[in-house]
Amino acid sequence: MAMTRSASPRPKPRRLRRQPLWLIYGFMFPAVALALIFDYYPALSGLYLSMTNTLEIGITSQFIGFSNYVSLFTNPIFLDSLWHMAVLAVAGVIIGTVVPFTVAEMIFHLGSQNWRYTYRIVFLLKMLIPGMVVVEVWGYIMGVNGVLDQVVRFLGLPGGNISWLIDQHTALAAIIFIGFPWVAGIGILIYYAGLVGIDPEILDAASVDGSRGLHRIWHVDVPLVSGQVKLIVILSAIGSFQGYFAQFLLTQGGPGWATQVPGYFMYLNAFKYGEMGMASAIGVFLFVLILSLTIINMKFIRSSQDYQAQ
C-alpha cells in the first residue's frame, strides 16, 4: 500500500522555507491562550463545580462528590423537566426532519432555477430575524383572545378563549407550536443539496420504471437522502436538549413547572436560586447527553460536508 502510494506520480508537497519556531508559536499563541482560559478552564471547572455545594460566587464551598447529581435525580421538578425535554425533542426531531424535506421537495420540483433560488432565499431570510422578536410575537399570538384563539373560534373548534402558554394542559404543546409552520432554517438547504446531488440517471431509471409522484419521493428520494435525514435528526435533537428560549421569554418554566426543561432549570439554579453547584451538575448532565449524540454525529460530519452545495 505504502509502496504503491509512493510510486504514484503525485507531486511531493514542497516545504515552506524554515521560519523561526518562536514566530510560528507566536501566531498560535492568542488562539490557544483564549481557548485554554475561556473554553477549557470553564469546561473543567464546571465538572469540579458540579461536585461542590457552591451557592453564590465568592462564598466558600466544599467538595461534596456526587451529592448534587443524587439530589437532581430525586428532584421531581428535574425529573419532570427531563420528560418535557424528551417530548420537545421528539417533536423537534419530527418537525425538523419532515417539514424541511417536504418543502425542499416542493422547491426541487419547480423547473425554474430562479424560482428555486428565490424560495431558498425567502425561507433563509427568516433566520436573520432575532429569535427573541419571533418568540415574543408568538406570545401575543397565543395570548387570551390572540390570533390563535380567533382562528380556533373561526374554525369552530373547542378550547378557545384561553392563554395557551399559561394553561396547564396546553403550555407544552404551545411551546412546540411556536414557529409554525417551522419551515425556515438550514434543513431546507441540507435536503435541497441532497436532492440536487441525486444522480439524474437514477431519476431517469425510476421514471422509466413508472415511479413518479409520491411513490418516487418515498421509494427513491427518501432513501437517497437518508444521510441528510440522520444529520438533521441529530442536529434537531441537540438543539432541543439545549434550548430554553421560550421558557426564558414566555413561560418561565410554568405554569407550575409544566414547561420546565433542564436547560432553563440550570439557568434558574445558577442565576435566580443561588445554586451554582447544582446548576453546574445540570450543565454536566446535558453535556454528557449531547456529547453522546455528537459522537454519533461525527460519523456524519464528513457526509454533511459532502452534502453542502450552493
Partner: peptide
C-alpha cells in the same frame, strides 16, 4: 463538541 450549556455557569464564575 463542548456545548454552551456546559460552560455557561462556570464561564460566569470565571
Amino acid at each position: 463538541m463542548v456545548p454552551g450549556v456546559l460552560t455557561m455557569v462556570p464561564m460566569f464564575v470565571l
